[in-house]
Design a binder for these strands. Structure first.
Length: 769
DNA sequence: AGACGCTCATTTTTT
DNA sequence: ATGAGCGTCT
């Protein structure tokens, strides 16, 4: 066949692409061209004559889907590529659910509740049930419900599941089952589905409607799934059902990169693939095109410590490269400073661009310090995660209006804006309204449509305010199918008064809110432009809403964000690659997360997470750990992560003081002064061959105890003779103070903990009166 | 009803 | 450090 693209693949990639007879599993090591195989395979299928609308390709993120679609478009043309069913599980099945909604008791315009909405709903339910919200923590209940849904356990099945009930009883939360039940009822009353519902309800749809299942089985002649290691049971079953007849399915993944079990992903899906699809062919992609040999080998030596895995030999034929540099620092602030220094150096002496560099961390909270350090050195950066555009208050407010207009039963949207801007409808009224709705088993909106019929116990004034609110929404709702999304959203913003306060108040916050709302309107406008029919923007507001709730901030890349250092969690970095990667906060109690050290299984997932982090790097990888870190309002002391020792030492460049064979990593409190010198000397060492780093780091940590810049013996901040408290050594008496290399030092007698010489800069001391 | 300011507890990862 | 929830004051 004439398909010249095949020549651009190596042998194993090519075999994986060309096999289209039955089920296949492609085990793709990190950087081995997994996406390449998927895109070429789809292009190949199209070349063999398969219609694009017969191909279903499921990805993990919108971004992955979009990029893949673009690449395919360049190979086979945009006109063909546009008809592919390509997207995330959530977006594809929300689309299918919309067209089949009536079959499962929802309407086409059902709302998608994001996790903030579910959380809020759970809170209200707990409150209404008069339960103690400290016992029934929303986080716990939410994860419990999510777990159940991901495993297709309905409230009825939950009741019947003795294990779950026992577990809840043992955890003293026996009423979780009831909350779950009510939660489902409420979602349905609100005509809303949460994220998990999109998968659960798809299963329900297929199970209860065999003809519908058949219909989609026939539509999807070939199914491809990316990141199969991260699928959960609900996703597994959807795919299995759809592929049941022909088993024309190809899944791609890497068990070594399975990092989402906390939200229900089941690594067994990929490990057991050949048991599900008996004639499955397995292809392994083992050549890594991304990273240097050192990085690949280091990552291999790490993942080798996991018992659960599909054995494979990932190798690189790129240059050997530099060892992974381990950076040992004192505090999180220093960590930021040093990383920023290295980044400056990479940029100015090695011609790295900011976009070539990423800082990866375990938790979002760590971004703060890094951010400050980068800002101080004027290094442009972009933080992913944290609160995204769509989580900003003003955006959520506008979207809530839109949601309510499209689906008046949406209780969470209603609660959000019924009194915003203030219109004299307070908590008391809202509670009455919801209580009344529950009493009659209808939505809150339904009560509003006929307050007399439902005997809503409010006075005439309040009733009037409610009626006004209702008619405002009604007016918008009437335009829902006649106005396009942009026009309607625009008039909602203008007339509802969501941002009217920003017109009188000219504070910077107000202006920024206003800008954000304009930004949102712009996005809606672009959405309409992208869906022109006969040159007319006909996209409806509900169309926009159905997409917007599944967007994340990674999907809103702006041109101005191009050449910037990337800051993100390791989770968010999956699938990406950078020339240089800094993995920071590699400490016990942080990475691995203390929540994940209970079982070997969880620990292995954390190790895989570290593996993912390392394998993002193409050329250079740095790993840092701090000896103390400011967390939750206080300083914690920490030891290097156990995972560092899992990497074969030959691929590492250890800091001079922490050669594990001589001194245990973590013995450090004996002599801070020499530590300080070592830390400085590590700067004069080249990062890698031939490049010298500027030797003197500038002072970056403000003295925790003094505001002055110059330190002299006169203004030293702790007087001799006072008693101080140290978070580790306890209470001690200051015997002597001095200045060493411009830093205040104190000799303190901690009694039985001994005599310590501490730099005030590092030791957070509290002076006792 | 609404605004303000206090105290309290809470800290993983996110389609 | 930060935010959410609560009580008090206007």
């Amino acid at each position: 066949m004439d398909f010249p693209f095949l020549n651009e693949l190596n042998d194993s990639q090519r075999r994986a692409v060309e096999y289209t007879d039955g089920a296949s599993l492609v085990i793709a090591g990190a950087g081995s061209g997994k996406t390449r195989v998927l895109t070429y395979k789809i292009a190949y299928l199209l070349k063999t004559g398969m219609a694009p609308s017969s191909i279903l390709a499921l990805t993990f993120t919108n971004k992955a889907a979009r990029e893949m679609k673009e690449r395919i478009a360049t190979m086979v043309g945009e006109k063909t590529a546009r008809y592919l069913w390509m997207g995330t599980f959530h977006s594809i099945f929300s689309r299918i659910l919309r067209s089949e909604a009536e079959l499962i008791g929802y309407s086409k315009n059902y709302t998608i509740y994001d996790s903030a909405d579910s959380k809020s709903l759970i809170k209200s339910i707990v409150k209404e049930m008069k339960l103690d919200d400290k016992t029934y923590k929303h986080g716990f209940v939410q994860s419990r419900i999510s777990y159940a849904k991901n495993n297709l356990i309905t409230p009825e099945a939950y009741l019947a599941n003795t294990d779950l009930i026992k577990a809840d009883n043992a955890s003293r939360v026996p009423l979780t089952k009831d909350i779950y039940k009510i939660y489902c009822t409420r979602c349905k009353q609100a005509d809303a589905m949460d994220f998990d519902d999109l998968l659960l309800q798809t299963n329900v749809l297929f199970k209860n409607n065999p003809t519908i299942l058949q219909k989609y089985q026939q539509i999807f002649r070939y199914i491809l799934v990316d990141e199969y290691q991260d699928t959960n049971f609900a996703q597994y079953l959807i795919v299995k059902k759809l592929a049941e007849q022909h088993e024309k399915i190809c899944v791609v993944g890497d068990d070594a990169q399975s990092i989402y079990s906390f939200r229900g992903a089941n690594i067994d899906n990929i490990l057991q693939f050949k048991n599900t699809y008996h004639n499955a062919q397995i292809f392994k992609l083992e050549r890594n095109y991304r990273s240097t040999q050192t990085i690949v080998n280091a990552a291999n030596s790490l993942i080798d410590k996991n018992a659960q895995q599909i054995r494979k030999t990932v190798f690189s034929e790129k240059e050997t490269g530099n060892p992974i540099k381990i950076l040992s620092v004192f505090t999180d602030f220093e960590e930021g400073f040093i990383v920023a220094n290295y980044i400056s150096d990479l940029r100015f002496t090695s011609n790295y661009l900011c976009q070539d560099i990423a800082i990866l961390y375990r938790t979002n909270a760590q971004s703060r310090v890094m951010e400050e350090a980068l800002r101080k050195q004027s290094i442009p950066y972009r933080i992913y995660g944290g609160l995204s555009f769509y989580q900003r208050k003003e955006i959520k407010d506008v979207i809530a209006y839109c949601r309510l207009v499209c689906n008046p039963n949406d209780e969470e949207a209603l609660k959000r804006i019924i009194n915003f801007p203030a219109r004299g409808i307070g908590d008391t009224t809202i509670n009455k309204l919801i209580e009344c709705a529950q009493l009659h088993a209808v939505s809150a909106w339904e009560v509003l449509t006929d307050m007399l019929k439902y005997n809503l116990p409010v006075n005439a004034g309040t009733a009037n305010k409610l009626a006004q609110f209702r008619s405002m929404i009604d007016v918008f709702a009437e335009q829902i199918s006649t106005q396009n999304a942009y026009d309607l959203a625009n008039s909602i913003v203008k007339t509802s008064g969501v941002i009217s306060d920003t017109f009188t108040d000219h504070s910077p916050e107000s202006m920024s809110r206003q800008e954000n709302v304009q930004e949102l309107l712009k996005a809606i406008h672009e959405f309409c432009e992208s869906k022109l029919v006969d040159g007319e923007p006909t996209a409806l507001l509900s169309d926009f809403l159905s997409e917007v709730s599944l967007l994340t901030d990674q999907d809103t890349d702006k041109e101005s964000d191009k050449d910037k250092v990337t800051l993100m969690t390791v989770h968010a970095a999956k699938g990406l690659e950078f020339k240089a990667v800094f993995i920071v906060g590699m400490e016990e109690e942080l990475f691995p997360s203390p929540f994940c050290t209970q079982s070997e299984r969880e620990l292995e997932e954390e190790r895989r997470l570290f593996y993912v982090a390392i394998t993002r790097a193409e050329e250079l990888c740095f790993i840092s750990f701090a000896k103390s870190r400011f967390r939750n309002g206080k300083t914690n002391f920490s030891n290097p992560s156990r995972f560092i020792k899992d990497i074969d030492e030959q691929y590492l460049e250890m800091p001079p003081e922490a050669k594990p064979k001589q001194t245990r990593i973590g013995d450090w409190d004996d002599d801070l002064e020499t530590e300080r010198n070592r830390f400085q000397s590590s700067f004069s060492k080249p990062i890698f061959r031939g490049n010298n780093i500027p030797a003197t780091p500038k002072r970056m940590v403000k003295l925790s105890n003094s505001g002055g810049d110059k330190i002299t013996t006169e203004n030293i901040s702790i007087p001799i003779g006072v008693y101080v408290k140290h978070s580790v050594f306890g209470i001690g008496k200051v015997l002597e103070t001095s200045i060493v290399n411009g830093n205040e030092k104190a000799d303190i007698d901690f009694g039985e903990k001994g005599l310590k010489s501490l730099l005030l800069k590092f030791a957070k001391l509290e002076v006792l009166k």
